[in-house]
Write a protein that binds this DNA or RNA. Structure first.
Length: 293
DNA sequence: CCGCGGGCCTGAGAGC
DNA sequence: TGCTCTCAGGCCCGCG
């Protein structure tokens, strides 16, 4: 499900429930998600204060008073919801909020502020892992990640260098988290469309003969910035699974110009093309062959 | 090292 | 109604 804007939306929703609160109780309702939970998973969380909730690429990162960091990834179908539901739970008896139980609720956090935070993930491509903050730089899950697309390090020059010599398509390069971290299939399609750049173009062609960024590269970076910022402002995109932690849907899906719009007229003013779909590296690409070059 | 295809899971929707 | 097939917002792994 979630790309950077959805993860950022989830982070903002979880922040008030987590930051500054203590984790009083953790319940894992099965032995694994994508990977088995660490044997000491609950013990390392229980009683710890959450001092901050950040995001790196598509990872949520909760800083704990113990010096650990809880990494959380939503995979394709993961979501969190925050249940405050005063009076619904029976203190000291069954902690899980009655009537709030849903299929695929895998992890529950009970916070000292009364919030109950539930992680739900039907497909279980999501996962959680606790690591020591001191070991963050060596964490394999984070080690190879490229720059944040909304951070200062990501610009046309950087992207041009990162794609230099790449024989693969621009679409595949932008999906490669080592090049830039946080984009997924939807926002890559949308950014390429907005920049009028073809997903089939060789990644290395962002550079001119001297290796400098082309105007196309500049346009592409601007389009990535714009589409991500607009999607975050809209609370992300809700296709199947994504919800804000409040349960509200994001609404950026209504602003898609090409994603899942095969057969529709190209929305570029003056373009008479039609939105097409084809499969690239096993994923659907949506684009307008007429105005994306 | 690089790029690609398969696999991990469940559920929704289309077509018969 | 119900079966089967395809596809889905991610990412790791093994192969050539």
């Amino acid at each position: 499900m979630p790309e950077l804007p959805e993860v950022e939306t989830v982070r903002r929703g979880l922040q008030p429930a987590m930051e500054g609160a203590r984790i009083d109780r953790v319940e894992t309702r099965r032995a694994d998600l994508r990977f088995p939970f660490q044997p000491d998973f609950s013990a390392r969380l229980t009683g710890r204060l959450v001092t901050g909730l950040g995001r790196r690429a598509k990872y949520l990162m909760a800083d704990l008073s113990s010096g650990d960091v809880l990494l959380m990834h939503l995979g394709m179908s993961g979501s969190f919801r925050v249940v405050t539901a005063a009076g619904q739970a029976t203190p000291g008896e069954f902690h899980y909020p009655r009537g709030e139980d849903r299929a695929h609720d895998h992890v529950l956090f009970e916070m000292s502020n009364g919030a109950r935070i539930v992680f739900n993930d039907p497909r279980r491509f999501g996962y959680m892992k606790i690591i020591a903050r001191a070991g963050l730089d060596n964490e394999p899950l984070l080690k190879g990640l490229g720059p944040e697309p909304l951070g200062n390090a990501f610009d046309a020059l950087m992207l041009t260098k990162a794609t230099a010599g790449k024989a693969t398509s621009l679409k595949a390069a932008l999906l490669d988290q080592r090049v830039v971290a946080g984009l997924g299939n939807i926002y890559v399609c949308e950014a390429l469309f907005r920049a009028h750049v073809s997903p089939k173009r060789k990644a290395a062609t962002l550079a001119d003969k001297k290796g400098e960024p082309t105007e196309r590269a500049t346009r592409l970076v601007a389009a990535i910035h714009d589409v991500l910022n607009q999607a975050i402002a809209a609370g992300g995109s809700s296709l199947r699974d994504h919800r804000q932690t409040s349960g509200e849907l994001g609404y950026f899906q209504h602003a898609f110009q090409v994603y899942d719009r095969e057969g529709e007229k190209c929305p570029t003013p003056g373009c008479t093309g039609t939105v097409k779909r084809f499969v690239q590296n096993g994923r659907s690409t949506f684009w307008c062959p007429s105005c994306q070059k």
